[in-house]
Design a protein around this nucleic acid. Sequence first.
DNA 1: GCATTATGCCTCGTGTTGCAAGGTATCGCG
DNA 2: CGCGATACCTTGCAACACGAGGCATAATGC
Lengths: 112, 112
Amino acid sequence: MAENNSNFMSGVPELLILRLVREKEMYGYELVQAIRERSRDAIALGEGVIYPVLHALERDGALSSSRKTVNGRSRVYYALTAAGAQRLDNLAGNWSRLTDAIHAILIGVQHA
Amino acid sequence: MAENNSNFMSGVPELLILRLVREKEMYGYELVQAIRERSRDAIALGEGVIYPVLHALERDGALSSSRKTVNGRSRVYYALTAAGAQRLDNLAGNWSRLTDAIHAILIGVQHA
DNA sequence: GCATTATGCCTCGTGTTGCAAGGTATCGCG
DNA sequence: CGCGATACCTTGCAACACGAGGCATAATGC
């Protein structure tokens, strides 16, 4: 039975981070702004959300980090690992199934 | 200024309950099963989730309750109030905006 | 007659997690 | 020289979903 709900609508920050990092290496501060911009301000995750998630994902092997200095600024770039890609697919699937289910209830569809 | 995210993907149980009760009066035990059935087991909220939310919604004036005895069983039916309908519209709108934003990021749409 | 299941209500404790607030340091601009 | 932007980070709080339990009655099964 694989996974139950367990805080079923949670893990969205994680999902967004993994998705964005899949396109290209990114660093924390950049992710904060990217999420704000791409969602047109609908989602505004603070650094207090992003950094802990980033650390957790790296600890779990979903992301790998590399320090780079740009313009005299030290940045920690994160890249998606194979495990991370797997995790992303997993989360995206869960999210999709969940929102479909909620949507079905919201529009009041025939239930079986 | 207006509202920020504040636990942006939360309140889903509340949303589902309000939506279901809008169609007809329902009682706790019934809601637990209705959510499971309508979501085809994608969402399985336990009674430990439903009842506290029900009580909070009534306390806030979004629901009104009435005790009825059916088949020698005592049930507490909840009905949507005007305030509750307002709240439902509000939550549904938020949810819609949120999922749209997430979807936009997931499919990698052009941002502005 | 007795036990198990289903119905129906409820609460408590735990763990997760999103988040604001605060802390540090460097760079560029006025 | 000061201020805002860039860039990293941690701590503490509050909310919340959830499992695990607890209580009571009706129906079903053995």
